[in-house]
Amino acid sequence: NQASVVANQLIPINVALTLVMMRSEVVTPVGIPAEDIPRLVSMQVNRAVPLGTTLMPDMVKGYA
C-alpha cells in the first residue's frame, strides 16, 4: 500500500509547510503520495489541517 502525507501537527492556513509538519502513513482514502513531501515544503494549505489529517491535493495551494 502506498503511504500518504499526513499532518504531524495542526497546520495553520497561510503558513509555509516544513518537513516537521508532515509524516508518511498508509491511510484510507489515499492522499498526496509520501514521495511528494519534498515538493510540498514551502507550499501552503488553503484551510487549517488538524493533526492526523491526510493531506489531499485540493488542500495545498499550487499542488494540483
Score class of each variant (00 low, 15 high):
Thr54His: 02
Val41Ala: 05
Thr28Asp: 15
Leu10Thr: 11
Asp36His: 15
Met21Trp: 03
Val15Thr: 15
Ile37Glu: 01
Asn14Gly: 12
Thr28Gly: 08
Ile11Ser: 01
Ile13Thr: 14
Ala34Ser: 12
Asn8Phe: 03
Val15Asp: 08
Pro12Ala: 13
Ala7Val: 07
Glu35His: 10
Met22Cys: 03
Gln2Asn: 12
Met59Thr: 05
Ser42Ala: 11
Asn8Ser: 12
Gly31Phe: 03
Ile32Met: 03
Lys61Ser: 14
Glu35Ala: 10
Val27Pro: 01
Gln2Pro: 14
Val45Ile: 11
Val60Arg: 00
Leu19Thr: 09
Pro33Ala: 08
Gln9Met: 10
Asn8Tyr: 03
Ile11Ala: 01
Thr28Trp: 06
Gly31Lys: 00
Glu35Ser: 11
Ala16Val: 11
Val30Thr: 14
Pro38Leu: 10
Leu55Gln: 00
Val27Gly: 03
Gln9Leu: 13
Arg47Trp: 06
Ser42Thr: 09
Leu19Phe: 12
Asn14Ser: 09
Asp58Trp: 10
Ile13Trp: 08
Gly62Tyr: 08
Met59Tyr: 09
Ile37Tyr: 03
Val45Gln: 00
Asp36Asn: 11
Val20Ile: 14
Ser4Trp: 02
Val5Thr: 09
Leu55Ser: 01
Arg47Leu: 07
Leu55Val: 09
Ala7Met: 04
Pro50Val: 06
Lys61Glu: 12
Arg47Gly: 07
Thr28Glu: 15
Leu19Asn: 08
Asn8Val: 08
Ile32Thr: 03
Glu35Trp: 07
Met43His: 14
Asp58Glu: 12
Ala16Gly: 14
Val30His: 11
Gln44Thr: 15
Leu51Glu: 14
Glu35Gly: 10
Asn8Leu: 05
Gly52Leu: 03
Ala7Pro: 01
Val41His: 04
Ala64Asn: 12
Val49Asp: 01
Gln2Gly: 15
Ser4Val: 01
Val30Tyr: 11
Val45Ala: 06
Pro12Ile: 03
Arg47Met: 15
Thr53Gly: 12
Asp58Asn: 11
Pro29Glu: 07
Met43Ala: 15
Thr53Asp: 11
Asn8Gly: 08
Ile32His: 01
Ala16Glu: 14
Met43Asp: 04
Asn46Lys: 10
Pro29Asp: 07
Ala48Asp: 15
Met59Asp: 14
Asn46Pro: 02
Arg47Tyr: 10
Leu51Pro: 11
Asp36Trp: 07
Val41Phe: 05
Tyr63Pro: 04
Arg39Ala: 10
Val45Thr: 14
Pro57Met: 05
Pro57Asp: 06
Asn14Arg: 07
Arg23Phe: 03
Met56Trp: 04
Thr53Ala: 12
Arg23Lys: 13
Lys61Asp: 11
Ser4Tyr: 03
Gly52Ala: 07
Met59Lys: 00
Ser24His: 10
Leu51His: 11
Val45Trp: 00
Val15His: 11
Val49Phe: 03
Val49Gln: 00
Glu35Thr: 14
Asn1Ala: 14
Asp58Met: 09
Arg39Ile: 08
Val60Gly: 00
Arg47Asp: 07
Ser42Lys: 09
Ala7Gly: 02
Tyr63Phe: 11
Ser24Thr: 14
Pro50Lys: 10
Pro29Val: 07
Gln44Tyr: 14
Gly31Gln: 01
Leu17Glu: 01
Ser4Gln: 01
Ile13His: 15
Leu51Ser: 13
Leu40Lys: 00
Pro33Cys: 06
Arg23Met: 05
Val41Thr: 09
Pro29Gly: 04
Asn8Trp: 03
Val30Leu: 14
Met22Pro: 00
Val5Asp: 01
Val26Glu: 15
Val15Gly: 09
Gly62Trp: 07
Glu25Arg: 05
Leu17Thr: 00
Leu17Cys: 03
Asn46Gln: 13
Arg23Ile: 05
Val41Ser: 02
Thr18Pro: 00
Asp58Val: 10
Glu25Gly: 10
Asn1Ser: 15
Pro50Asp: 11
Val5Asn: 02
Gly62Pro: 05
Pro50Met: 07
Ser42Met: 10
Asn8Ala: 13
Val41Asp: 02
Gly62His: 09
Ala16Ile: 11
Pro12Phe: 03
Leu55Cys: 03
Gln2Arg: 05
Ala48Asn: 10
Thr18Ile: 07
Pro29Cys: 05
Val45Asp: 01
Tyr63Ala: 04
Val6Glu: 01
Arg39Phe: 13
Thr54Leu: 04
Leu51Lys: 11
Pro12Met: 06
Asn46Phe: 10
Val27Thr: 13
Val5Ala: 11
Val26Phe: 07
Ala34Arg: 05
Thr53Asn: 08
Thr28Gln: 08
Thr18Cys: 04
Gly52Ser: 06
Val15Phe: 11
Met59Pro: 02
Val60Ile: 14
Thr53Ile: 08
Ser4Lys: 01
Gln44Ala: 13
Leu17Met: 12
Thr18Gln: 13
Ile11Glu: 00
Val20Gly: 14
Leu17Gln: 00
Val27Leu: 05
Pro57His: 08
Lys61Val: 10
Met43Trp: 06
Val60Glu: 02
Pro57Ala: 08
Ala16His: 12
Leu55Tyr: 01
Ala34Asp: 08
Ile32Asn: 01
Met56Leu: 12
Pro50His: 06
Thr18Gly: 05
Met56Val: 07
Gly62Ser: 09
Ile13Pro: 14
Gly31Ile: 02
Val45Tyr: 03
Lys61Pro: 15
Gln2Leu: 13
Tyr63Met: 06
Thr54Gln: 02
Tyr63Trp: 15
Leu17Phe: 02
Ile13Arg: 08
Thr53Gln: 14
Ile13Cys: 12
Arg23Asn: 08
Met21Thr: 03
Lys61Ile: 14
Gly62Leu: 07
